[in-house]
Simulated assay, not measured.
Amino acid sequence: MLNKLARKMKSDPVEQTLPDQDAPVPAHIAIIMDGNGRWAKQRGLPRIAGHREGMNVIRTIVRSANKIGVDTLTLYAFSTENWKRPKTEVDFLMRLPERFLSMELPVLMEENVIVRITGSKERLPEYTRRAVEEAVTKTADNTGLILNFALNYGARNEIMEAFEHIYEDVEKGHLRKEDISESVVSDYLMTNGLTEPDLLIRTSGEIRLSNFMLWQLAYSEFWFTEVLWPDFKEQHLLEAVQSYQNRQRRYGGV
């Protein structure tokens, strides 16, 4: 698979960033897609133009991740804090899942991709819920890459809800306090059933987590880039993967 990719990119000047074929590709990559607004501002365009261009980048990165053998790709699409943005921008962002999935669903089906949503459906407009639920249902029997959109997602809220549900199950006798472990807590999170990210990528030069997967990223490798999300290309993904492959993950050991 990577041999085909190498041939395809033979003339690419960033060929040296191709992943090592003898080293493992991160099974789960999570991306904080940042910089759409700044990309638009630099060009004298409205912020929504940056979000539109960012949606086109998603198409490229999903295909690239699938091509090199990534099992799960989580994209931070809309946070619980993003509701604070101007209404016109929020309304546009809420339309993006519908637009993206209406165009890409046939291709996702063809490429055996599974669509999953992590986040609260509360506050989501009906058209947004309908679009994502249709994609989740139609791709449920696929067996390839899991494309997980973090939509109306906030990690602190996720953890609080998890402990509320744990408390309720302890009160009802469904769970004993002495049986609560890290793996049990993970089962109560919105990401239950998914592996924890091996690699986190954040674009636009910001170096923070922004309330994203605080529990799940405990032992992930981080890769930050100054590149704004609308300018993020396959070569940048490959560079991040190569950086991951050159690291030694010790999980607190030696």
Rank of each mutant, 00 (worst) to 15 (best):
K4E: 03
A6I: 00
R7P: 11
M9N: 04
P13V: 13
P13W: 04
E15Q: 12
Q16E: 12
T17E: 02
T17L: 14
T17A: 12
L18N: 05
P19E: 02
Q21I: 08
Q21V: 11
H28R: 08
I29H: 02
A30W: 01
I31M: 13
D34K: 06
W39L: 10
A40M: 05
K41R: 14
Q42M: 09
I48K: 12
G50F: 04
E53W: 07
E53K: 12
G54W: 02
S64I: 01
G69Y: 00
V70W: 02
V70I: 07
L75V: 14
S79Q: 02
N82V: 03
W83E: 06
K87W: 10
K87P: 15
E89H: 09
R95E: 02
E98D: 12
R99L: 11
L101G: 09
S102C: 15
E104D: 10
V107R: 14
E111T: 15
N112W: 06
N112C: 13
L124D: 04
Y127H: 11
Y127F: 12
R130C: 11
V132G: 01
T137W: 13
K138Q: 07
D141C: 15
D141H: 13
G144L: 06
G144R: 10
I146E: 07
N148K: 06
N148S: 13
N148M: 09
F149Y: 04
A150S: 06
G154E: 09
G154V: 06
G154P: 01
A155H: 01
R156L: 12
R156D: 10
N157W: 12
I159F: 04
I159C: 08
I159E: 05
M160K: 15
F163P: 00
H165R: 13
D169G: 04
E178Y: 08
S183V: 10
S183Y: 12
S183Q: 11
V185R: 08
Y188C: 03
L194F: 07
L200V: 14
I201A: 05
T203K: 05
G205F: 14
G205D: 09
L209W: 10
N211Y: 04
N211E: 09
F212D: 00
M213Q: 06
A218K: 14
T225P: 05
E226W: 10
E226G: 07
D231W: 09
F232G: 02
F232L: 06
F232V: 00
K233R: 13
Q235W: 08
H236T: 12
L238T: 03
L238N: 08
L238Y: 06
E239L: 05
S243K: 00
S243T: 03
Y244P: 01
Q245W: 03
N246K: 07
R247Y: 04
Q248L: 06
G252V: 06
V254A: 13
